[in-house]
Amino acid sequence: MKIAVLSGKGGTGKTFVSVNLAYIQEQVTYIDCDVEVPNGHLYLPMKEPAVQPVYLPVPSIEDSLCTGCRTCIDFCSFHALCWTGSRILHFEQNCHNCGGCSIVCPTKAISEKPYSIGNICTGSFEHVGVMSGSLNPGQMQGCAIIRKMIAQTRDLKNLVLDCPPGDSCHVVQSILEADLCILVTEPTSFGASDMRICIDLLKLYNKPFGIIINKSLDTRNQIKTFCRRHNVKILAEIPLQPELASLNASGQIAAKNPEYRRVFERIFKNAQALIHQQNQ
């Protein structure tokens, strides 16, 4: 089963749920799709990971062939190409790597060269396969890294995709191949508001999903009210516990403790049941 874990609001416990949900499974790979600030490796440290750089094609301009006609500048919708008065200047960060400039150039002065935007680390922690994408600071095209990680794990059966917060294109890219999405939220107004935004996104992409209320207090809260009213499945409530919080904050896998392992096994079972229900 390919499970994507997302949240809307940051800090609700996506990585906490993801690493533990991966740890209780066999033959599973954890993928950290939060390429701007990957942190799953703190819980699942890889020994000697294989590092592969991720490149995108950007224009390489041969000044001696450029006539300054500005066809490429007019073509580029993202203002990645500019005219300095004597030559073309390229802004790699604005480039969407479409290759259009090299096609429209009448004198064939533009070819493509690779531009490094980040890397992917692959390895394992105990029985869990780990893949972690990392986008270089200042770069914008994190989707390319996520796309590459998903392409490289397409044939694997069991994945846990730890998504970035929010509902940006990085999140959309991360959930595309998921069989099921788990929305981790917390009983705060901020948590509830962002959860609703993510629910809209998941409905748009027709993804089966369930909610985990993390840091839950055993009282009525707006998350529960919302889920009841809109017939949204709550997969689990993880109570607010100082011991669990400090275990997690020290980088430990909570599911190594049998008591917490049972919590995540139940979540996994409920998730399987949800998929089963959907397929009927």
């Binding site: 993202f78 203002h79 500019c82 005219w83 300095t84 802004f91």
Partner: peptide
């Protein structure tokens, strides 16, 4: 809109 700085700098050059 986006890329205001780059486009404005281009305006100066032009």
């Amino acid at each position: 809109g986006q890329s205001a700085g780059i486009q404005t700098a281009q305006l100066m050059i032009d």
